[in-house]
Design a protein around this nucleic acid. Structure first.
Lengths: 229, 229
DNA sequence: CGACCATTTGATATGGATCAAGCGATGTGG
DNA sequence: CCACATCGCTTGATCCATATCAAATGGTCG
């Protein structure tokens, strides 16, 4: 586990160009990295993956678990920018510094890639540059959709959140919700109380079933879609 | 005006690689384009530049005037994604279709670039690929900042809007506001009434002066910054 | 078992939406 | 050039969704 051949960076599909000489060296600011040149890191629940303002020298691909990006406003409120599930790439920024912080929502395994290495590769191989563009475009669309969420009613926001999670988890009708109600609230621009109330209200309506704190079953998707419109 | 050498696409600074063989042919779906191979187009006020769902075959650089991107929700509400001032590039999308519509807020002159041409160039020249990435990253950050706006109070949103416009216009303390109150409201996720009320309130506080409908003078920037935090 | 923290539930307050009307600028036809 | 229509903007009155404050409940972990 001292080196990681290039083809371990798979964005959508695994890439087929092997470039074993290219290593991803890990900076010592990364927890548990030490002197290792490995690329896969475990973060404990609540561990900071990177902080706002830190140099954006790395980007991250979620292998297992869930992370979130967020920003703390001057008045103490927190806005969650997004949740990152297995397969997602995050930490790709415009400038040289992260504009959001990232934190592990649950224990997670993250592939860490040095940005400069990726940029160098992108310079040599067109497909990689295009894939990076695609990842960024995808992220842009996600954030735009999130923007649209924030102008809707509480019920619409919660319904949209549930459907989004269902679509991304896609384990049938039961959603695993690793994040706390507070995390959800900060993602949706609501208070915990409103999220909680809305969930029970959706349960009363028969749209969902709150199996346990971190598990929600969708009972009536079309109703959720109707609320979501 | 039948052809346009490559170095007319300047993102941040003009690029110095001439590639006169490369033309930007304009699709006939673009107004006033006709059979021309030219790249600079005038749009009248309220003219549609592109529509949501249309193929994103072109991207656009604002030369003069102001445009906005927006989306109509199923309930009829409109969310404005952003305003585009001279120098801005817009229309760069993740997939093959536009996820928002774009419309001229004032009469504007727009440079139109065929996406496939740009992608081809990006494949050949690393600097161009990097510039495209930078443009996208910039846009991503802008949208993220917009997201943060939408969870704030009305006063904070309006103050932030004024400061944003001042920063981008940078003609001293007087802002030209080409967009209607309704456009501003839809950008900030408020109603026209609230925008109007908040502006007069800011005037009473001495933070601004409503010189005319489309012209606002900043009288006390630090007050606006304080409201903005 | 007991302490703690997340979540839910309840009561009340409030910021912004909604409904409604007035006002002022701009444009048009006589 | 003026009367008038129109549209965008402002101002006023009221309502409602969500925030806020407060307390009860329940799950988790030592």
């Amino acid at each position: 586990m001292l080196s990681q051949p290039i083809n371990h960076i798979s964005f959508n599909q695994p890439m087929n160009h092997t470039d074993a000489a290219q290593l991803y060296s890990l900076g010592q600011h990364l927890p548990e990295a030490g002197e290792l040149m490995g690329a896969s890191i475990i973060f404990r629940r609540n561990a900071e993956i990177y902080g706002e303002g830190e140099p954006a020298d790395y980007l991250y691909k979620m292998l297992s678990g869930t992370a979130m990006t967020y920003k703390i406003l001057s008045d103490g409120r927190r806005q969650v920018g997004g949740f990152h599930l297995p397969g997602d790439i995050f930490g790709l920024e415009a400038g040289d510094a992260h504009s959001l912080s990232a934190e592990a929502v649950s224990r997670c395994n993250v592939l860490v890639v040095k940005r400069s290495a990726l940029v160098a590769m992108a310079g040599r191989q067109q497909e990689i540059a295009l894939e990076v563009l695609q990842v960024m475009g995808h992220e842009l669309r996600r954030v735009q959709t999130h923007t649209l969420l924030l102008i809707r009613s509480a019920q619409e926001r919660v319904a949209a959140f549930l459907l989004e999670m269902a679509e991304r988890n896609s384990t049938g009708d039961v959603i695993e919700v690793p994040m706390s109600r507070q995390d959800i609230a900060d993602y949706l621009g609501l208070t915990v109380e409103t999220v909680s109330r809305t969930l029970t209200q959706l349960e009363i309506l028969g749209a969902i079933e709150l199996s346990s704190r971190r598990r929600i079953a969708l009972r009536n998707r079309s109703m959720l879609h109707r609320l979501n419109c």
